[in-house]
Design a protein around this nucleic acid. Structure first.
Lengths: 145, 145
DNA sequence: TGACAATATCTCGAATTCATAATATTATTA
DNA sequence: TAATAATATTATGAATTCGAGATATTGTCA
């Protein structure tokens, strides 16, 4: 009983995150996107043209995987590869017209979904959650140096 | 600013969970285990002999993946497949002597690690976290029906 | 400048996961 | 009891991810 009790915040954190991720996955799957693909489009939507490396760093995806996901998104017609004028090693990627149209529809929908997940919390509870998660995250990160 | 603010609990939840999972992964990797493999061993350690199906349900892993991970663990000598006397469709898996020895060492270590992640929170904050996560999880689950 | 380190992308292979179908067994029911 | 549905596992192939190595380019510094 002792152990189960001390595990409860951990288990709830994992379960809640899993539920949220599945919900998001279900939502982007409707548009035939994987979560990684959506993340790439989301970064480009908010930040505009970026190099493949910049996007990969933002969403913590390895370079080999970035090549793969960018290929997929180009195939689907949602983004374009372009040469990077200042650095011939790098490649600029940006949303195509279709990609922008898609995200114009998807981003607000996504935001509503995220908001709805926390809609049962009042302002006090949201602040408490933020506060406690910040503390926990710091502790975990200092643990793994 | 508005959007970023409303996303903060979501982002923090994802980031905190990711940090925790990486910490756990680093810990079990020391023993040449994947997180899924560790989860299987953990269930068997706490619940004793189970069918493959029972373990898969506990840790939410598809049956095809269970076959794969059980193969790996048998190869590594940490668990055994046995016939299930009552039901010849099912297969019992249980820790081998080596598997038990491994988990005798690993489980307490794992528990200490988990506990340390929440060690910066006082009792009040832990209860608040549990409370808020429960509410959020329920909301998300009702959303995806 | 020339040598070498760092950076960006891509290729390739290994690992892991899921979904589907196949097989075997058990449970149900007409 | 015979037919059918449900269950447990395995086999297989597709999708995705990572890591290591290859290639091309850029930056650094003696």
């Amino acid at each position: 009983m002792d152990k189960i009790c001390s595990n409860e915040p951990y288990l709830l954190l994992m379960q809640t995150t899993k539920a949220i991720q599945e919900c998001i996955k279900a939502n982007v799957t409707k548009r035939d996107l994987s979560v990684t693909e959506f993340s790439v489009l989301e970064v480009l939507y908010h930040k505009g043209t970026q190099t493949i490396h910049q996007v990969g760093s933002s969403i913590l995806v390895a370079s080999g995987s970035m090549t793969y996901v960018v290929d997929k998104l180009v195939q689907k017609g949602f983004l374009e590869r372009n040469i990077c004028p200042g650095d011939r090693r790098a490649i600029h990627i940006s949303l195509s017209d279709n990609g922008r149209k898609l995200m114009d529809a998807l981003i607000p929908e996504h935001q509503v979904l995220i908001d709805s997940m926390f809609a049962s919390l009042d302002r006090y509870e949201v602040n408490s959650l933020i506060d406690v998660l910040r503390k926990t995250k710091m502790k975990v990160e200092e643990h793994s140096n």
